[in-house]
Amino acid sequence: MLTSLHRIIYVSRSLLRGDEDQVAVELRRILAVSRRNNASEGVTGALLLGQGSFAQVLEGPMVAVERAFERIQDDPRHADLVVVEVGAVDARAFPDWSMAFAGAAAASAAPRVRAVLDQVGTAPRATAAESVLGLLDALIRRETEWAMAR
């Protein structure tokens, strides 16, 4: 139980302020720390920033994921965090990423991001979880393709 594979999906409101470059710098910091911490604890996942909100998937051994969550919820760079899904899963959705990031892809898919965020407030939990996961998956895939094309 303590070490079986768990996943947490949450969304929160970003409090990152400033122009694009300042936000990018802060994001890079978050990602660097995330990747370092997550890799050492067997946590993988994906993060999206779009429409002023974060959406994040964290997966890994239960205790490690819960510990990462506990660190993240306390971070002053975001607020109003809502847990969309939490529980045991059979397999990781992002096995290859200690923390994948969707930035440019999220910007290019604004309407879809908006729609998924809206769903979090209204749709049943399971549906909302599925669409957040689907969104992150699609955007990470696209982001990766762009990176490779470059």
Binding site: M62, E66, F69, D74, V83, G87
Partner: peptide, 10 residues
Amino acid sequence: ARPYVVQGQV
């Protein structure tokens, strides 16, 4: 008052 995740639940 922020959410907690404990033993696989909120």
